[in-house]
Design a protein around this nucleic acid. Structure first.
Lengths: 303, 303
DNA sequence: TCAATTCATGAGCTTTACCTATGAATGTCA
DNA sequence: TGACATTCATAGGTAAAGCTCATGAATTGA
């Protein structure tokens, strides 16, 4: 057998109290059990730890030396337990995840704010990445999950849609525009528009959906960043063509979104996880927050 | 129940090898036992430590955090065991003891030399003390034992005679002196002599023994230190009156001792220990060395 | 001398720990 | 694709350990 923490607990107890009986009471065991634990430890270490008579329990020099080491081990054990409990309850820890650039800028800030309010001590490491890189990066890095607009199936990945935004025209709140319930892509063709560049994931999706219907989008401006498109829209340069979920209402209070129809195109925001990999409790808490926050923003699929 | 070192050993093994089976082999237990230990630890800490399938065992983030703490505890445990084993085998440690001034200067140096040769890593703390102080100091300080000329009984002390020296006349190796087997105290009265001061323990013993026989000692010189007496003798100032054991042959090669008789007075060198207090293994080793070294020098009680 | 306290020990019971055997899942190679 | 090999999990049984209770021995204090 080997030294056990039980024995060390008994040892430090006896060392401090100079009494087997008192130490046993502290540990919630009987005096005889404590006596045995000390005997075991002495046999284990090959050293007498206490000179004991019925009337006194005197630590030996060896006990003096052993005491510090024993205390350190016990406090390490307690520290480990406490730390793990904190991790388990998501009161401590770190969440590393990937987010596509658009999601990170438009959708996640409010999730982050809510999460930070409820879990102030959890470190967050959000890495924004091109949408196409989400899956390869998730397999390669230590990120626990990814959030972004991804569709399809991937080996060793589970995918879950958190919310989905209808492709919309975003423009200034003019009386004319505000009156509209929706716009068709055909109507849009006659207006100045701002869309994402052709290489972007979102644009590819649009172009594919439209060409399936024999239509096409000829934007007045093409940009790379969502924020650029929104800023230009706010300046009245045209209507931004983006999922409605991508409009942060607080950043652009003058803008409103109206769904585009014929065809209606929806764009999911999905959560990607590696299969067979448990999320850390902190990450689980974050995902839960994301689910509730984003669920409130889902554009109904029909309408 | 609580976290055990067994569990931690299994944990670090699995963490390192990424395999329950391999870790079990390392620990010399079966795979199923190792599997159970991991499950226990997880339940204990409330945290999943490994994502395991039949094909892979992946540490979680919690496991990454726990690993260092676990390793430290295990190495502390090993360090404790090793340190205690060293103490037990007297390969390390410290011996603190008291010695009366005379013993310390004349008798113990050779014991120290022999002990140091066989136990080079043991620290020695020898405190020389007036003979009368041996007992009070031994009860009050952390010294483990005392060596000196003490007779009688003391509460809570065990006493053991290590050697005893006959009171002798020590002089230069002249043909005349060397030819003598012994001297009587009466013969001594006509010669120049060097004795210890009246206050010293050794002198008190001499005076008592002589006065019991109606005799007395009138030394030419009275000194405090044994070495002074011997140095004066070496200069031919007179015969030193000391126990034969107190003559270090290597320091004073020109001197020889001849026992004093009528009466023959012996002076024990004793080992004092506190009753019910185990000596540390280092101290036991030292005492053993002292016993063997000093036993060789004992003057036969009769002769 | 008696009562009280404290540590050690032995008997007996309960709990734990471990092993063997087996099942389930997954990756590999023909 | 199907047989095979590997690996982890689980169930059942047994050996070992741990604990309690009861008791004994030693020592202190009244």
């Amino acid at each position: 057998m080997n030294v056990t923490l039980r024995q060390l607990r008994a040892f430090t107890g006896v060392y401090r109290t100079r009494s087997i009986t008192r130490a046993a009471r502290e540990l919630g065991i009987t005096q005889s059990a404590a006596s045995l634990l000390i005997q075991q430890l002495e046999a284990q270490l090959g050293v007498k730890l206490f000179d004991r008579s019925t009337r006194s329990v005197q630590p030996t020099l060896a006990a003096d030396e052993a005491f510090d080491a024993a205390e350190r081990m016990l406090s390490d054990a307690q520290g480990l337990s406490r730390r793990m409990r904190d991790l388990a309850q998501a009161r401590a820890g770190r969440v590393a995840f990937l987010a596509s650039a658009g999601t990170a800028s438009a959708l996640l800030p409010m999730v982050l704010a809510k999460f930070r309010a409820s879990h102030p001590d959890i470190e967050i490491d959000m890495r924004d990445v091109a949408a196409d890189d989400l899956v390869p990066r998730l397999t390669a890095t230590d990120a626990e999950f990814a959030i972004g607009s991804v569709e399809g199936e991937f080996a060793d990945m589970t995918i879950e849609t958190l919310t989905s935004g209808r492709l919309s025209a975003i423009g200034r709140r003019t009386a004319d525009f505000a009156a509209r319930r929706s716009l068709t892509w055909d109507e849009l063709a006659q207006l100045p528009t701002i869309a994402m560049r052709r290489e972007t994931r979102i644009r590819i999706q649009i172009d594919q959906a439209l060409s399936a219907q024999g239509k096409r989008l000829d934007p007045t401006y093409e940009v790379t960043l969502i924020n650029t498109a929104l800023a230009m829209t706010a300046q009245g340069l045209g209507l931004a063509i983006l999922p409605a979920t991508m409009l942060p209402a607080d950043q652009f209070p003058t803008l409103i979104a109206r769904p585009l129809v014929r065809p209606a195109i929806t764009r999911p925001v999905s959560l990607l996880q590696r299969q067979g990999r448990t999320l850390s409790p902190a990450a689980q808490a974050f995902v839960a927050t994301a689910r509730t926050v984003l669920a409130g923003r889902t554009t109904p699929a029909s309408g």
